[in-house]
């Protein structure tokens, strides 16, 4: 159905990132959080891949590390043939033009002291795409593309509503003409009615500009609408990947099933198939041995407590990291 091109646009392999913190007095203890524990997935040109999981599972860290906002501890990120993690400062500037990010909270991601024309014009000027009088019409075109009128040019971010601000954030990500956009929970700070508008906008942009997206979200409903393939993460690991309709109809990993039953169903009469242990996800500081999910899993067997399952193919385009999945 969604054939993945031979060479993917973005190829993330075995990405690792730990955060250490030293706390305690008088003897400080070092605790290590493995935010990314060998994460791999690919994104084809023009493809929309959703990354879902609970908060703290490392889904935002994927984007931050791939964009070099934070340095990875290991693994590789390959973007259209270029090794992102090893790229020099100069190469990185070229890569950044093609790989952009939309942030969750648009009021925090825009500089409140900059008018919109300056905020969107600055990347154009810095990258030498426009200068002087040419900046303003280019910014106006960007605003038009995200559905904002020209009168927005000379306003400040605080004069806009949340949804309008997110449109500005999207326009800024588009300014350099990227091929891939990391969207980190781009609609979760917005009202539901506004969410739909922004999603529609992203969908239009995807079609018109042939954009690829890594769409990070905890909201399965949104992912189901917008994404064609999904990567499910749990405590720094990928537990299941596959095409959206199949994963939603027939989730193979118990965690994916948990996510599915915890998100509101269109059909409330449908029976919930499994019962799950209550409670918060275990602390990422000291994750359970073996399969990270076993303390919450109703199907767990002894093997799950000692041996950590690897991601393996179970059907064309689908992989699951579970000993019991078929």
């Amino acid at each position: 159905m969604n054939a993945i091109p031979a060479t993917p646009l973005l190829d993330i392999r075995d990405l690792r990132k730990s955060f250490t913190s030293r706390r305690g007095w008088p003897i400080a203890r070092t605790s290590v959080v493995k935010a990314l524990d060998g994460v791999s997935f690919t994104v084809g040109a023009g493809e929309v891949v959703g990354v879902v999981g609970e908060s703290g599972c490392g889904k935002s860290t994927v984007a931050r590390v791939a964009l070099r906002l934070q340095e990875a501890d290991g693994g590789s990120v390959n973007f259209d043939g270029a090794d992102v993690l090893e790229a020099s400062k100069i190469d990185m500037r070229a890569i950044r033009r093609r790989m952009q990010m939309v942030f969750q909270d648009p009021s925090s991601s825009l500089d409140g002291r900059q008018r919109i024309v300056d905020a969107l014009g600055e990347p154009l000027r810095v990258h030498g795409l426009a200068s002087g009088a040419a900046v303003r019409p280019m910014v106006a075109r960007l605003l038009d593309e995200v559905g904002l009128p020209n009168s927005a040019l000379d306003r400040y971010p605080h004069e806009f509503s949340g949804g309008q601000r997110q449109r500005i954030g999207i326009a800024r990500a588009l300014a350099l003409g990227p091929d891939l956009i990391f969207a980190d929970e781009p609609v979760s700070a917005l009202d539901v009615s506004v969410q739909a508008q922004i999603l529609k906008l992203l969908e239009t942009l995807r079609a018109e500009r042939h954009l690829a997206f890594v769409f990070i979200s905890h909201d399965l409903g949104v992912v189901r609408y917008f994404c064609r393939r999904v990567v499910v993460m749990y405590l720094g690991r990928v537990v299941e990947t596959g095409p959206v309709p199949e994963i939603f109809v027939d989730p193979r990993h118990p965690y994916t099933r948990l996510l599915k039953v915890s998100s509101p169903e269109p059909d409330p009469t449908r029976a919930v198939a499994m019962t799950f242990q209550e409670g918060e996800p275990p602390s990422p500081v000291d994750p359970p041995k073996g399969c990270h999910f076993h303390p919450r899993c109703p199907l767990a067997i002894d093997r799950c407590r000692v041996e950590s399952p690897v991601l393996r193919d179970v059907a064309p385009g689908r992989s699951v990291a579970c000993h019991l999945a078929t």
């Binding site: 990185m92 952009q100 942030f103 991601s109 825009l110 002291r113 990258h127």
Partner: peptide, 20 residues
């Protein structure tokens, strides 16, 4: 986030510190 936004847009550290 705007500091990260500036970095992902490829702005120099000097620009981020003294312009933003």
């Amino acid at each position: 986030d705007f500091v990260d936004a500036c970095r992902s847009l490829g702005f120099s550290d000097f620009r981020i510190m003294f312009v933003h």
